[in-house]
Amino acid sequence: MSLDKATVRRIATLARIEVPEAELEATAETLSGILKWIEQLAEVNTDAVAPMSGGTDLKLPWRSDKVTDGGQRDKVLANAPDPQDGFFGVPKVVE
């Protein structure tokens, strides 16, 4: 499977990554290369193999319903470019 320029442009928009028009062609080739490599894996017959979520027997760890975190507004806002009265300030987003 190979990607065309329009598809790459759309993916870039969805991912909020700016890809200059001049680089679209090259980016399409790079991404297509990755996809080809993934397609190779699909050639392996896995009919008798149950779907796996990893290579180990790890189980999802669970946590009890206790409040153990929070109350650290200064740290949460430490890297915010525009903190406002305890909020994150951002350019107006209203639908």
């Binding site: 949460v76 406002q84 009265d85 305890g86 994150f88 300030g89 350019p91 107006k92 209203v94």
Partner: peptide
């Protein structure tokens, strides 16, 4: 998102 606290900004509470 709080939209009515500032003319040009939205305020975010997580």
């Amino acid at each position: 998102s709080v939209h009515d606290m500032h003319a040009t900004k939205s305020f975010i509470d997580l």
